[in-house]
């Protein structure tokens, strides 16, 4: 399968945070910040963007996990072996995006699994700001577009 990515358009994101609740509900039946695998960054109350795991090529979370609980599956998704995870949080510290969360009850980490290709955050987003991007090339071109837009605003 082609690798998939979640992409959020910062020109559309309004900081309504519905994606956070949708994610935590689907994964835990609770409306929770801690249990959500997606977060929304707020720069100065002016620019917002939802971020989640983007399956880095070089995966520091996997590299630094002392229990070998994390691995990458054939779709590129980072999978957590809940039996092996000790909840030490080492992967959270090493994640460059800060998008690994910990379930406070089970004390194991949780990483976006794209909801089997049908992500709840995409479904709930009222602005259609979050979408699934197929393939690394498309992901790169999307990021390129965003870069240009931000540069345009800065000029």
């Amino acid at each position: 399968m082609t690798e998939q990515f979640l992409f959020c358009d910062s020109n559309k994101c309004t900081n309504c945070r519905l994606c956070i609740y949708a994610c935590s509900f689907i994964k835990s039946k609770k409306f929770s910040i801690l249990r959500s695998r997606i977060r929304v960054l707020d720069r100065d109350h002016k620019t917002f963007v939802a971020i989640t795991c983007n399956h880095c090529e070089d995966t520091p979370c996997i590299t630094y996990c002392p229990s070998k609980a994390l691995s990458r599956n054939e779709d590129g998704i980072i999978v957590v072996d809940e039996e092996a995870c000790t909840g030490c949080g080492w992967c959270i510290i090493h994640c460059p995006l800060g998008v690994i969360s910990m379930d406070p009850d089970k004390r194991v980490v949780a990483i976006c699994d794209l909801c089997d290709g049908d992500p709840e955050c995409v479904k709930i987003c009222p602005m259609d700001a979050i979408e699934i991007i197929e393939g690394k090339e498309r992901y790169a071109s999307k990021m390129h577009e965003i870069g240009l837009k931000i540069a345009g605003e800065l000029l």
């Binding site: 020109n11 559309k12 309004t14 900081n15 309504c16 945070r17 519905l18 609740y21 109350h45 002016k46 917002f48 009222p126 602005m127």
Partner: peptide, 16 residues
């Protein structure tokens, strides 16, 4: 410039 929302709001009536 663009829309902004309060928490849990799909309407996003506010604008930057």
């Amino acid at each position: 410039v663009r829309h902004q929302a309060c928490g849990s709001c799909p309407i996003s009536c506010a604008r930057l």
